[in-house]
Amino acid sequence: MQQAEEALISMRKLGKVFLTEDVETHALYEIDMELHRGEFLSIGGPSGCGKSTLLSIMGLLDSATEGEYILKGQEVGELSVRERSRLRNREIGFIFQAFNLIGDLTVRENVELPLTYRGMPAADRSQRVEEALEKVDMSHRMGHYSSQLSGGQQQRVAVARALAGSPAILLADEPTGNLDSKNGMAVMDLLHELHGEGATICMVTHDPRFASFADRSVHLFDGKVVSAEEAERLAKADEPVPAAAE
């Protein structure tokens, strides 16, 4: 059913090259990938393989230097900075490894932040914030500042912030990376629950335990999508992928 519909995210021969003076670094190379509505995708791979770069491009925080990236049927490469901000605000929810709550805002204000950039009426904002915080079981901490919360609680608030705007997709970059195993598992349970309710999630993780929560996994190695088996082999052999090395 999902495969028959138009993909929420579609990437064709997407690449990212970092240029520093006379050095070219290929962070991503000819990535072909699709993500459908309601899907839970995990992106794995060793450190420096380009996972986070790919997620940044998906989240419109960065731009590809090559190829095509279509989000909800729209080619994003030609969008202006303003249009990208707008699309990011409405269609994408971020969950970061480092939580990235704003220390000078309360829990409520942090969750409310993306909604304020939409110009949403206060009553609607309030309702949405309460719903989102209830969903992550943090509504009792609305007036607190992030410094008054544990790491697990902060990440739950970050999930609520990502959810509050009803985005088309949740992008999670190592959401459990800064948490102990118990809190990490709690966050994964939360993501799993959200997925069960229909959320589209794309998560970067290098932990196979958490990758198993996803419907599907994509493996990156030296900036290129490889099969799970090849990724395992290359990691053991510790040798570069021939295509990416070009």
């Binding site: 925080l61 409405r90 704003i102 220390g103 932040l113 950039y117």
Partner: peptide, 16 residues
């Protein structure tokens, strides 16, 4: 910087 980065990430435009 972190605050600015988060604001940009959740959709704050340049002018905003």
């Amino acid at each position: 910087q972190q605050e600015f980065a988060v604001r940009i990430a959740v959709g704050a435009g340049r002018w905003r």
